[in-house]
Design a protein around this nucleic acid. Sequence first.
DNA 1: CGTCCGCCTGGGAGCGCTCCCAAGCTTTTC
DNA 2: GAAAAGCTTGGGAGCGCTCCCAGGCGGACG
Lengths: 351, 351
Amino acid sequence: MKMTLEEIARLAGCSRSTVSRVINHGPNVRAETRERVWKVIREHDFQPNLAARALAGRRSRVIGLVIPQPLSTIFTDPYFSMLIQGCATACDERGYYLMLSLVLRQADDTYRWLIRARHMDGLLLAPPLLDDPFVPHLLDKHLPLVMIGRIPGRTDIASVNVDNVKGASLATQHLLNLGYRRIATITGVLNLVGAIDRLEGYLCALRKAGIEPPPEYIQEGDWSEMSGKRAMERLLQFRPRPDAVFAASDSMAIGAIKAIQAAGLKVPDDIAVVGFDDMPSAAIADPPLTTIHHPIEKIGFLAAATLIEKLEIPATSMSETNVQHIVLPARLVIRMSCGQALRCSAESAVT
Amino acid sequence: MKMTLEEIARLAGCSRSTVSRVINHGPNVRAETRERVWKVIREHDFQPNLAARALAGRRSRVIGLVIPQPLSTIFTDPYFSMLIQGCATACDERGYYLMLSLVLRQADDTYRWLIRARHMDGLLLAPPLLDDPFVPHLLDKHLPLVMIGRIPGRTDIASVNVDNVKGASLATQHLLNLGYRRIATITGVLNLVGAIDRLEGYLCALRKAGIEPPPEYIQEGDWSEMSGKRAMERLLQFRPRPDAVFAASDSMAIGAIKAIQAAGLKVPDDIAVVGFDDMPSAAIADPPLTTIHHPIEKIGFLAAATLIEKLEIPATSMSETNVQHIVLPARLVIRMSCGQALRCSAESAVT
DNA sequence: CGTCCGCCTGGGAGCGCTCCCAAGCTTTTC
DNA sequence: GAAAAGCTTGGGAGCGCTCCCAGGCGGACG
């Protein structure tokens, strides 16, 4: 027997409309009726037809997560796995579906398709490259959209982000507090805002302490362990050799540690290392990595939750006045690689 | 102006039905009319409402890819990235949408949800663990389903697979041809059919040559590089030390190479190594890895194409008689790690 | 005791398509 | 040259919901 609202209504002895109200948690249904309807629904394992709902209700309850990166990147960096987890959880809780919009075809096509084909009610946009030419197309249309990360100069777009500048600054400050003065950094790919912000945080902290690092102390990586290793090898060439390194990601920090160890030096005794992101790998690194906690999953969760909220109260979302910008604080996680234990200078590094 | 079939019809001077026929590439439309309608559609960037199509046509044109593995695994192993790429390409070409059914919640819930919520027309099932208790639920319902890989003893389910047994056998045979006799293996997780099949291929080839490997020559890994390294370290303990190793994945082969090199030995001079999968990393390994080519993307493509075909010709799909089983051949890719160059014994290893 | 206002409930009118049948027109066939 | 058999084309009848309005019912109020 094919189940429809009508059929459930017949079995529960009420009307289609009442069943619909029950399913959508609408008001104005007597408690007793509500319970009776739920019982029938449960008994028959009924699930309303999504296509019909979408057609009649003019919304699909699907939101898309656009990750403007090649598939190989997405499926290599645990960052995205955690981000998706967070988004998916928020969607689940609110009865929405998360659809990954993998950019497979040439960018041009895909973005146009995304914009036109409104089979999603809104879009979540993962951090795009600064020079991605198609992101503006996405932003111009009046698709409800929430950014993960931020685009410099675009305060008109709702966003959820971690405080990268503050986090990097916290990491650098911690090294300064421990007495290091020759602090180098390994940055992420610098056409990603997050990498730029982290570099800025590093520079800010140093400058506040009256230190201007030599340009050679700033080496660009690409987030990968290998690139961290390479960057560290370059840093090891330079004299005076740095006594501490802030890497903009844990992977790169781990690469750096490997380079240091391969050169016959010790972490943190000879060179201290601090990472960023607090990935699972940071805790099990050797030595365990001091790092900045980056609540990636929470960011995904909040981004999805924000978008859905916009969708459900369109009145508010339309008013350009109050665009939400959520910035989560970054937190220092002290482990072994910074040498705090060694130096015993447990001065007020964190709070 | 909101665009609908009706509106396009008005602009093209024909009826809703004709426009529908054009969009669906139906027969019985005069060439001239067809062209006129397309022109209007293109001009207005029209895309039919998916919800309405799904409701009226009783199919969503969405197929789900179920990967019964934790998210962290999916987003770590490039295997899935390639698989998805293949599936998505096939879907794209046929106007279908691929939806990743990430198993986020506890398995029980999710599978029930997958089965009930028919917002997809069919399912693609990535290789499940042998003891996954919920896969049978998926198979019992009459959801159109195509397996990637195979489940032993279930010949009633359409499947697309690489010939793992033959591939492993090819790899081992190649080592035998080169004169190696103490050939060890590093297997994948043995509750995955692929791993078992590859082990079987290895054993078959050895036994055919009259060799019975000591049990210590068979070490289980978990597909990861680290596990390959660990397994190789165990193999290096054993006497007589193996002179060649067949690893059931390239990652593990690379880990094995690192272990061999860390022990002060050379590949392939002291120990030859052959991998499986022919991942991009195999070609750039040091030394470049001899391996078995595994057409993952093609498998994904064929699986999706097969499913869609089933969907479009339901008459055929219903007849239990001819369930498709596609088995793609595995191919030996000779590079440096097997020592063929060294030994110059270029006897008919491959064809 | 009648009126008003709330809470419930039922059903009509679509949402934008696909499917199907019938009507018009053109071609074939004997 | 008329009937039969194509091609095209148009429009009705849903698909299973949501939205909205109208009506029934009860209690609070004057």
